[in-house]
């Protein structure tokens, strides 16, 4: 199977799964922004995405995407380390053209995954999972598993010093994700062959603007609730 056996094939898997995750992030960001304007609206979405069959299927698919993206990343990284050989340069000078993110995608990815774990613990565990296992009540605090806005408020504001830690961790996480996306989006297009001398700078520009918008949406919600502006607290 060429998607597994060939270097370009493996990269195509990374690109396609990555772009799919970018689409998910776009949706997630759009959804989150609602929480700034209307807690009820946001909760309606949360309810819609609760323990319904389609949401569960979506969750499983998302999980699979993340898993594929992550497993292939490990595979590629191991292969690349091997290809680099046993000896390392004593002196290396990074050319100006080379962006830091592009050389550290795996490290950034690990930060993203760690952040994801925290995020799943904070929200998914208390919402969709809690709906399935805890009779509709969140584990962490005494709110309904469908009260998304309440969960956000609790996580970033209502849990005392822990909330402050969460805010910092989330910001670090989102920052890593921003770097990851800035390189990831154009890089995925490049791997899929949709690039050229003219499109190169366009694609880079598009990736940066797109990543920035998505990440800013997330950051806005975190800060909005962290400063206590969110409802229900």
């Amino acid at each position: 199977m060429w998607l597994l056996n060939s270097s370009i094939g493996r990269k195509v898997v990374m690109s396609v799964s990555g772009l799919a995750l970018v689409l998910f992030l776009t949706f997630h960001a759009a959804m989150n922004v609602v929480a700034i304007f209307s807690a009820e609206g946001y909760n309606m979405i949360c309810e819609f995405l609760g323990a319904n069959w389609y949401a569960l299927v979506g969750t499983i698919a998302l999980g699979a995407l993340v898993l594929i993206h992550f497993v292939f990343a490990i595979l590629l990284t191991l292969q690349n380390r091997k290809a680099r050989g046993a000896s390392r340069y004593a002196v290396t000078a990074k050319p100006e053209k080379v962006e830091w993110a592009s050389q550290n995608m795996f490290v950034l990815g690990i930060i993203v995954v760690l952040g994801l774990c925290l995020h799943l613990f904070n929200f998914w565990f208390n919402m969709q999972f809690a709906e399935l296992t805890n009779g509709g009540m969140a584990y962490a605090t005494n709110v309904s598993a469908a009260d998304g806005a309440g969960m956000i408020a609790y996580a970033f504001h209502g849990a005392g010093w822990l909330s402050k830690v969460y805010v910092v961790l989330y910001l670090v996480w989102l920052c890593a994700l921003w770097f990851h996306l800035c390189h990831g989006i154009w890089s995925a297009m490049q791997t899929l062959g949709a690039n050229g001398k003219i499109w190169f700078s366009r694609l880079k520009c598009i990736s940066q603007i797109y990543s920035t918008i998505v990440i800013l949406c997330f950051v806005a919600v975190v800060l909005f609730y962290a400063f206590g502006c969110g409802a229900a607290c």
Binding site: S7, L76, P95, V98, M105, Q190, T191
Partner: peptide, 15 residues
């Protein structure tokens, strides 16, 4: 032949 996978770092074109 054991060459690695391209991750589009652009180090190649820079040098």
């Amino acid at each position: 032949l054991g060459f690695g996978n391209c991750t589009n770092t652009r180090a190649c074109e820079a040098v």
